[in-house]
């Protein structure tokens, strides 16, 4: 379980997260949704200790993210942020191989090579393995970064808008992949832009608005025209297909 207690965060004089407390269940796929600027990336970065925690407390499976050595946390959770700028010119396989760093610290074993290969297969990157990242499309590059996070083999996978640059086939495939990971006993927190991906694939949804938690619960509870309409400030129609909510946000 990820436990966020009383977390506020300010940049300069503006407070962007206001006293957030939330629990993210273990062994589930949790979707983090909300309008642009709601603070999703900020919250995820704080959980993933990418930014210093200003107030409150965050723990992942009981490990306090401030107290626990970063190296131990790296085996507990992998976080992929929204934008990634590399300083070196890498091939896809080299990038994915870095995912194993927390396990081998520079001396990869056969097991590490195998894990990297599995991650490449999972994201259909074998054919692109020897290409340089800058010679890839945005979506292909995104897949390489996801593969790296996957190769890290951590119990928790935190992904910030992994579907951003992906076509619909890969978007669905990645969501399905995350569900497979859950079946393998891992837990996933994913920021998604398209509410319907959350509605169909997630077990649990946390909705944010203006730096606060606006709603949380199973998709059936959160994806209603009342709740989502309030959060996004628009009129929404919601229907149901195969027992899953379908939000008609484009109508």
């Amino acid at each position: 379980m990820i436990c966020v207690e009383g977390v506020s965060h300010s940049i300069g004089k503006t407070e962007i997260l206001h006293d957030i407390s939330v629990e993210i269940p273990k062994g589930k796929v949790t979707a983090l949704v909300g309008p642009n600027g709601a603070g999703k990336s900020t919250l995820l970065s704080l959980i993933g200790r990418l930014m210093p925690l200003q107030s409150g407390r965050i723990s992942v499976d009981g490990a306090d993210t401030v107290q626990t050595p970063s190296r131990d946390l790296a085996r507990l959770m992998a976080i992929l942020s929204q934008t990634n700028t590399l300083g070196s010119r890498l091939r896809v396989r080299e990038l994915v191989a870095f995912g194993r760093w927390p396990h081998h610290q520079g001396r990869p074993t056969a097991e590490d090579v195998q894990q990297v290969n599995d991650a490449l297969v999972a994201l259909d990157l074998i054919a692109l393995g020897d290409r340089f990242l800058e010679a890839l499309s945005g979506g292909q590059r995104q897949r390489a970064f996801i593969a790296m996070a996957l190769a890290q083999g951590a119990d928790w996978l935190l992904l910030d808008e992994p579907l951003a640059a992906l076509d619909m086939a890969f978007a669905r495939r990645i969501m399905a992949q995350l569900v497979t990971l859950r079946a393998a006993g891992r837990s996933v927190v994913v920021v998604v832009h398209d509410i319907n991906h959350a509605a169909v694939w997630a077990d649990h949804i946390v909705a944010m608005k203006a730096g606060r938690i606006a709603a949380e619960g199973p998709p059936q509870a959160v994806c209603t025209s009342k709740v989502l309409g309030d959060i996004y400030g628009m009129d929404l129609r919601v229907t149901e297909i195969d027992g899953k909510p379908l939000v008609l946000h484009h109508l």
Partner: peptide
């Protein structure tokens, strides 16, 4: 040298991989 390789990946990735 191996740690510098990780550092070159940028702060978010380096931290995620557990680099100090």
């Amino acid at each position: 040298a191996p740690r510098l390789d990780v550092l070159a990946l940028g702060q978010p990735i380096a931290v995620s991989l557990g680099l100090a």
